[in-house]
Design a protein around this nucleic acid. Sequence first.
DNA 1: TCGCTACATCGCAATTCACCGATGTACTGT
DNA 2: ACAGTACATCGGTGAATTGCGATGTAGCGA
Lengths: 105, 105
Amino acid sequence: MTDATAEADLVTVFKALGHPTRLAILEWLKEPESFPPQDRPATEVGVCLKHIQARAGISQSTASQFMAILQRAGLVTCTRIGQWSHYRRDEPAIAALGEAVARTV
Amino acid sequence: MTDATAEADLVTVFKALGHPTRLAILEWLKEPESFPPQDRPATEVGVCLKHIQARAGISQSTASQFMAILQRAGLVTCTRIGQWSHYRRDEPAIAALGEAVARTV
DNA sequence: TCGCTACATCGCAATTCACCGATGTACTGT
DNA sequence: ACAGTACATCGGTGAATTGCGATGTAGCGA
C-alpha cells in the first residue's frame, strides 16, 4: 500500500492539531499582521517565535518545540533571518491536507 | 465567543483521529460490506464491535474504548440491537467537520 | 434458572506527551 | 572580544494516553 505512508502522515498531522494551543497558533498565523511589528514584515517572512510565545503564554522552549511539531507535520514553514526564526502557514500543504482529509476521512 | 466550544470540539476530533488504528477503523467503516456477515446487514445498522476488534487485532476492551472515543468525537454512531453494538460513520457530522476544518484550519 | 455471548467499565503497568528550566549555538551591536 | 538577544535542544518531572486482563451487566438460548 502506498497509502501506508500517507496514513502515517495524516496521523502526524492530527496529532499536531490535537492540542488546543497548537491549533490556536495555526489560526493566529492566518493574520500575521495581528502580531506586534518586526523589522521584516510578518506578512512576507512570517511571525517571529517570540511573538507566538508571548501570545500563547508559554515558555520559550515549549514554543520552540510546538513550532517544530507543526513544522514536522508540514503545516508551517520556518524562515531563519539573522537571529530570528519566522514561521508562517504552509498554505499549499494545508490545502493538500484538506484534500486528503476529504478523501480518506 | 461561540468558537471556544467549536475549537474544543475540533481538538477532540483531532485527538481521536491522531491514532493509526482509530483512523483506520473510520476508513474501514466506509465499506461495511467488507466485514463478515451478521444477522442484521452492516450496511443498514452498522458493523458489530467484534468484527472491528478482529480486523484491528486488538483486545475487546481496547476496541470498546476506541469506539467510545470515536463516538464522543461525533465521528460514529452506535446502534444497540439485542446484545450487539453496531457502529457506523456519522456522515453528516463528518461532512460538517470537513467544513469546519476547511474554515478554521 | 443456568450457562454462554457481546459489550462496557474498572484497575493497573507501560509508554508517550506536556512543560519547564538549564544549557548550547549563532547572530548583533559595542 | 564581549555582552546581550533569539532560538534550539537537553534533561527531568508530572500528567495523560495506551493497552491489557479482570470484573460487571445485559440479552439469548437450553
